[in-house]
Simulated scan of single mutants.
Amino acid sequence: MKNQVTTIYKQAERFAEITKTAIISGNIVRAKKCLALAERLYITGSYETKSAISNVYVFSVSSFMELRHCTISDLFPKSLKAEYSKQIHASGV
């Protein structure tokens, strides 16, 4: 298959792209649904799933939103927002 995604990290990357596309197109309802699903995966997933959501998805979506001057706190669910805050404080920003 041409579009087959092979690893959990590639899947998280693709999911982040879908979320960013929803934000770009102004489909905030869909973006919030994506973020809610990512939150559920982060809370209930395996260690590898949590790692992929944190290191790939949250990083990608939050970086994109900052570059476009979007307000992250309005969209990110509680656990993802906490993970985002940890990343910001760890980086020294």
Rank of each mutant, 00 (worst) to 15 (best):
S79W: 00
L67D: 12
T7V: 02
I72C: 10
L41C: 05
R30M: 12
S46C: 06
S25N: 15
I18C: 10
L80D: 08
E17D: 11
I8A: 05
K2G: 15
G26W: 07
L41I: 06
N3H: 09
N3A: 14
S79F: 00
M65V: 04
M1E: 14
E66H: 04
S91F: 05
Y9G: 02
T19A: 13
C34A: 05
F59E: 07
P77E: 12
T6D: 10
A31S: 10
F15E: 06
T7D: 02
M65W: 13
C70H: 12
T71V: 11
V5H: 04
L80A: 09
S79Q: 11
I53Q: 04
A12V: 09
S63Y: 06
S63T: 09
T44M: 01
V93P: 02
L67I: 12
V29K: 09
A31P: 07
Y57C: 05
S60M: 02
K33R: 10
K32I: 03
Q87S: 13
I43F: 00
G92R: 15
S91L: 09
A36R: 10
Y57N: 04
L37W: 00
K20A: 04
A31R: 08
F15R: 05
A31C: 03
H89P: 00
C34R: 03
K78G: 11
T21R: 14
I43T: 04
S85K: 13
K20L: 06
S63P: 00
G92Q: 11
A82D: 11
I88P: 05
S73R: 14
A52V: 01
L75N: 08
L80W: 00
S79M: 11
I23L: 15
C34S: 04
V58H: 03
E13R: 04
L35C: 07
K50Y: 12
T71P: 07
N55G: 07
N55F: 04
K33E: 09
F76V: 12
E48T: 10
K81E: 12
I53W: 01
E17K: 10
S91T: 07
A22L: 10
I8S: 03
K81A: 14
T71Y: 15
V5Q: 06
I28V: 13
A31E: 08
S54Q: 05
V5I: 15
I53S: 01
T19I: 04
H89I: 15
R40H: 03
